[in-house]
Design a protein around this nucleic acid. Structure first.
Lengths: 131, 131
DNA sequence: CCTTGACCTTCCACCTGCTGGAACCTCTAT
DNA sequence: ATAGAGGTTCCAGCAGGTGGAAGGTCAAGG
């Protein structure tokens, strides 16, 4: 399969796939004309990457997950540890964003949003402790 | 004030402050010895930046907010539009992360996390539509 | 047979928002 | 005089790609 087909099937832009080859996540073969030739296993890996990235795993996480995936003797605890650590990070990110949302919602509600220059948003950013 | 003092007061690393000068967000004066000399207004701007960045506004948003802040005739609607757009983005990010959390929580729960190689996490990443 | 257009290739620069380090200068206290 | 804690500049690099230029290749239509 050429890169275009793989791109459509895996849902990753060709540029991203080339980048993944660059950093050693996939190693497709080459046709005599120099085109990349993706095997089923490459396709499989890229689809895996696409999903793992969509779940917010870092590239390094993905590299580890792929290694574990290749390793038939892996302990599921290893995979679970990666996922769990990632989950913790996701949860703290959600909490941060919820804090931010709260503040912003408050600010947007307070602001008249008309032609007058009085703006509680700027006042608050000026000195957030006064809110 | 020297950069160290400003750094402590604004809660921004000196490197970041120099970077903000580089990209034109602040323009401190210079002492004869070449040291940056921050006026009250610079300090003010940096504190503003520190807060706005903590709320997740992009640098470009901050640039716009600072311009509006400087503009006594601004319409509060302009500021509100920026904040509202940002709020929308925050909310969609939260929703994305909550989706991810749901999937991950499910996966971590399913996974035995022992020495056996059976791992529903990898199985799912292999073909997420089967979950 | 030639051309057109859609592919593919490589390489290099750029994006955001900093951060680290090297090499050097300056001020203050002892 | 010297040590140490500031300050300065510049250059490189992080993640995770994206954009564009310059060129090679392939299949279809005239």
């Amino acid at each position: 399969m050429n890169i275009g087909d793989v791109s459509k099937r895996a849902g990753l832009p060709p540029k991203t796939i080339r980048y993944y080859e660059d950093i050693g996540l996939v190693t497709p073969l080459r046709d005599p004309n120099g085109y990349r030739s993706f095997r089923g296993s490459d396709m499989h890996k890229l689809a895996f990457l696409s999903r793992a990235r969509a779940l917010g795993f870092t590239i390094e996480d993905c590299r580890n997950l792929l290694a574990l995936w290749d390793d038939k003797d892996r302990a599921s605890a290893d995979v679970r540890a990666i996922a769990k650590e990632h989950l913790t990070q996701i949860e703290s990110k959600i909490a941060d964003l919820q804090d931010i949302r709260k503040t912003l919602t408050h600010l947007v509600k307070e602001c008249a949003g008309d032609d007058r220059p009085d703006c509680p948003i700027l006042q608050t950013l000026e000195n957030i402790s006064k809110q």
